[in-house]
Amino acid sequence: MTGTAQTMDRQPPGEQEVLAEITRMLAAVLDEYGLDESEVTMDSRFTDDLELESIDLVTLAAQLQERWGERINFAEFLAGMELDEIIGLTVGRLVEYVVARLRPEAAERS
């Protein structure tokens, strides 16, 4: 996969770094409603706490892929879940998924 070699040169991002980036993406997605970035924690739920609609998650998925490439497949990640699970999804679970997918061993597998 293109881009893999260059991302493997440096340390894959940790949870704090990924959380900060996802928080910035959420602020962009929720632009018209406004978002207090300090509200976003690992425990924040996308729908109940951050008031995201499903279409906002689609926008977020595109941003994740733009930032970290095809290894981050949010749609596929969610496709394995029940509807209730998606609705209750926390920022933390997404952060953990991104961190795991960006580890070099995950890159080799894909």
Binding site: S54, I55, V58, N73, A75
Partner: peptide
């Protein structure tokens, strides 16, 4: 409704099965 109803249900599996999948709002 929006394209999200497909995006988070059948769309990824259809792409995995070899289809070109196009959705729009």
């Amino acid at each position: 409704d929006s394209l999200a109803s497909f995006y988070f249900t059948m769309a990824p599996a259809l792409a995995a099965a070899g289809a070109e999948v196009f959705m729009y709002d």
